[in-house]
Design a protein around this nucleic acid. Structure first.
Lengths: 351, 351
DNA sequence: GATAACGGCTAAATGGTTTTAGGTGTCCTA
DNA sequence: TAGGACACCTAAAACCATTTAGCCGTTATC
């Protein structure tokens, strides 16, 4: 009836009830009974009673003492972007199975926010970091490296910093896409990307440029300013497309640009691919189901997630071992998924 | 050159360097200098030195001592679902500004996983919970309520448990959608939902049923088994649509069902809305941009997030005050966004 | 002149665990 | 019978902060 809060059970309570020391309880609970020569009889009693009262050690105290939190900090650009959401979900699943918990945060590509998030993770002593780095956070990443905390970057990396990272060969993807468009007979291909200097964006641009150079064709590149103002983004892209009616194909360097692009194309009343062929970097339900279905450069999300978590867990295991764990740089290959939006043949609804 | 790890600065280091006690440092850092009558001179010296060396208190130790972590545990069904991703993102943003950090996890509607996650949050002493409850977790939620930890449920609730919750009047949404379809002249409307007994799903079904009852029309309801096997889901929905060719309209009770639905409809070669009108519960980029654009029952995501976080922060503020903080049950109203997929008129591309 | 009030600070308890360096008692061996 | 070996357990330090009670010297009060 009263508002009395039932006190949590402590290791102390267990120990005094069983008339043993707290050390004994702790050792048993941490599976060190054998090596500390706790008799099976005592170990059993402890286990039984702990089970009975449902005692769970206070993780804060535990972490304070051991320095391990079994938590991994995951810093992505935007958790509501399906690419990151999917990778995050896969990483979380894998980590969970191996006893690690993930705490996510979104940076919105904002340098200040990213710094704050990393700082927060540091204060909370996460055991490892998975970071999609935004620009200008070299110092912060250096700081965590100096502390020897296992870290893996993905999607892009910070040139000059010796980190593990998993990236996708974006140039390969856009090169293949451009080649494909050329083969289909499109000759005036535009490329829409962001104004950011992040490595992955530069790579994607490079693949497109290389393909066109090889064919000695002119390049039409638009770098739109990334902003939270979606109206402005849409307007920018729309204006670009409108001004470049000579273009017969367009490649968007990332999923959200493509989404605005499709909206702009629809608003302009252009038809895909008759008036304008489209290829998007990143896959998305929308692209798969759009009419016509949009050709995409799909990133190997499962593989990204698997590599990230494997490398991180490996490092976590071999902590405090050899002085210099070898850095791993993994480059995965994207897949061009050809759909109707980029083929010249008549669009027929396939079975 | 050596692997020597630079030791973190501790409050001790600050104190001894400044020749004051650690209590002084702590008081200054926690803004209690005035009330503890620390002289401005000392306070300034402390602040200056702390700034200089970049000292950050160990949050684990702090939390252990104070019992506050300033972390809120957010348990959603699936972070890669745009509805949850968006709400989570909005909640995170608000919480961040007010000094709280969010840690997310996805339950996949799996009872066991949900229990584990709640247990993990308990062990880590989160200050509050935001939960999208899956079925069968009444006990676990009861346990955290008993501990007086502020908690808010959203999207659905657990009947019988006295909790704060924010829900959307799904029945209102599906009722309006059904009415709209009837007004457009569709007379044989099907409803596709999941086999789960969660409150929000039941509500949505109820709105549809009520509308048809009022018009004394027959109901065609399909409850598909929710599964991670997307092929099976697609096949189920496809089979249902195929068997019910008499239906001229269909309402899907949640976004991912609609996505499979659209895929199935395309595979069957049916045209929207000529052969089959479509309405989806939940909005999505895909629905907005699909051809034809899909009519949706949009949930007020901003409002959901705002209510959730406001109520939670309010409770966190008034902790340990009055005995019984009044439970808040907020019911928000969804909006029917009419698009071409559910109107009988000729589809024209609007400007 | 004794008492109170206050300003300015600190010692020490506290939070809940892990882990190391022994302490006891029993038995075996030379 | 002294010495070691061993089995079984425990006291206490450590992790790093917050916070309470109180110390000491000065000044105001009656």
């Amino acid at each position: 009836m009263s508002g009395k809060v039932k006190k949590r059970t402590l290791i102390n309570d267990i120990a005094s009830h069983l008339q043993v020391s707290i050390a004994t309880v702790s050792l048993v609970l941490n599976g060190k009974a054998k090596q500390s020569r706790i008799s099976d009889a005592v170990a059993q009693r402890v286990l039984a009673y702990v089970e009975e009262v449902g005692y769970k050690p206070n993780q804060l105290a535990k972490s304070l003492r051991t320095g391990k939190t079994h938590v991994i900090g995951l810093v992505v650009e935007d958790i509501s972007n399906p690419f990151f959401a999917t990778v995050a979900w896969l990483i979380e699943k894998q980590a969970f199975e191996r006893g690690y918990r993930i705490i996510y945060c979104s940076t919105d590509n904002n340098t200040e926010k990213t710094k704050e998030l990393i700082s927060m993770f540091r204060e909370r002593h996460v055991d490892g970091y998975i970071i999609v780095p935004s620009e200008g956070i070299e110092e912060d990443v250096e700081a965590i490296l100096r502390e020897q905390t296992p870290t893996v970057l993905f999607d892009r990396y910070l040139p000059g910093l010796p980190t593990n990272h998993i990236v996708v060969d974006g140039a390969e993807g856009t090169y293949a896409a451009t080649q494909h468009l050329l083969e289909q007979g499109f000759a005036n291909i535009a490329f829409v990307t962001t104004d950011s200097a992040q490595t992955q964006m530069e790579e994607r641009l490079r693949g497109y440029a290389r393909a066109l150079e090889e064919h000695q064709l002119p390049q039409t590149v638009k770098r739109v300013e990334v902003t939270k103002d979606s109206d402005k983004l849409l307007a920018d892209i729309l204006a670009f497309i409108d001004k470049n009616r000579a273009c017969d194909a367009i490649i968007f360097s990332t999923n959200y640009l493509s989404i605005y692009g499709l909206e702009a194309i629809a608003k302009l009343g252009l038809r895909i691919p008759t008036d304008l062929a489209v290829v998007s970097y990143d896959d998305h339900d929308l692209f798969r189901l759009y009419t016509p279905a949009i050709t995409v450069i799909a990133q190997p999300v499962e593989s990204i997630a698997k590599n990230v978590i494997d490398i991180l867990l490996e490092e976590l295991k071999h902590r405090a071992d050899k002085p210099a764990p070898p850095m791993q740089h993994v480059v995965l290959t994207p897949t061009l998924v050809v759909r109707q939006s980029s083929v010249r043949s008549r669009e027929e609804v396939a079975t």
